[in-house]
Design a protein around this nucleic acid. Structure first.
Length: 287
DNA sequence: CAAATATCCTGATAGC
DNA sequence: TGCTATCAGGATATTT
């Protein structure tokens, strides 16, 4: 379940591995993941002879800027979303392990015979082809997203505005990518724990100082997570571009810790389910 | 119109 | 041991 810190880790990996490296046509897998393009074959022709000039991230999306000798900085971008089980994996020598080949849906084939594969067993991941409008840095496909949780100075400004008169649970609002982009179920619980806020609180019940606290906590938690290469959970499905596991899961304080003592007050962490999503929190010190 | 629910999907795991 | 049922959840579409 790659969220902003995991996607940022992948962004850095892809940046150092792929930027400026000329490509041939990519290999294609299942068509299901390709969106907003006439056919995946169009993408093949477009990437053949291209380079990625930069790799950017907004929320949980990666934005790969496409540059070609014939088009220059065309404004064309490839957008990747990892969904639940998506992985990016580099291979120094051509070819991936057979078990991964079955789920490799898009493989960038560089002319030096290195590869980067987008692997996704559950195919919740998505690939979009889009074009930047003049002067815009975000493509239309991503225009609905709120401020990026890691890049914005005040990522919760829009969330706060919307929360003022909302009876929606704050946990649910944190997951709304239109309000703030990059937080998923895992980091939402960690941020709420750090700010001592019950996930079931209505948006309108939060004070200004509680929003400030969430903003400060989010910055601490997510930057720390980036520093540790993200979080790999029990299924170990999240790995960086080299296949290595993240290390921030060892520092989770609430998420996934049902029945364990709260690190602050030793009360048992509880799990509730709402809308099919789990929330882990301390019923005692998250008020 | 906002909010709740259904849908997609397969590997891992719990339970029998 | 080996099978089956259940679970995980991000984003989008559909229904209430």
């Amino acid at each position: 379940m790659p969220e902003a810190p995991e996607v940022e880790t992948l962004r850095r990996g892809l940046e150092s591995f792929a930027v400026g490296r000329p490509m041939g046509p990519p290999r294609l897998g299942r068509a299901r993941i390709f969106r907003d393009m006439e056919s995946p074959e169009v993408l093949q022709g477009l990437l053949d002879g291209a380079v990625f000039s930069s790799i950017r991230r907004h929320g949980k999306f990666l934005i790969l800027d496409i540059s070609r000798d014939d088009l220059g900085e065309s404004g064309l971008v490839l957008i990747l979303h990892m969904g639940m089980s998506g992985q990016l994996r580099a291979s120094a020598v051509c070819g991936l392990q057979a078990m991964r080949v079955a789920h490799a849906h898009l493989t960038f084939c560089f002319l030096d015979h290195t590869e980067v594969a987008f692997i996704d067993p559950r195919t919740f991941g998505r690939v979009y082809l889009d074009r930047l409008a003049d002067g815009e840095s975000l493509p239309p496909t991503l225009s609905h997203l709120g401020p990026d949780i890691l890049l914005s100075q005040h990522p919760f400004a829009k969330l706060r505005d919307r929360a003022v008169d909302s009876r929606v649970w704050i946990k649910k609002m944190l997951l709304d990518q239109c309000l703030v982009a990059g937080i998923g179920n895992m980091y939402a619980d960690e941020v709420l724990f750090g700010s001592r806020i019950d996930p079931r609180r209505e948006g309108r019940s939060l004070s200004r100082s509680e929003f400030d606290s969430m903003e400060a906590t989010a910055a601490e938690v997510l930057n720390r997570a980036v520093k540790l290469g993200g979080s790999s959970l029990a299924d170990r499905s999240y790995r960086d571009i080299d296949g290595d596991l993240g290390r921030f899961q060892n520092e989770h304080l609430a998420y996934g810790r049902e029945g364990e003592p709260c690190p602050r007050c030793a009360t048992e962490i509880v799990r509730i389910v709402s809308g099919g999503r789990s929330s882990f929190f301390c019923p005692s010190c998250q008020g």
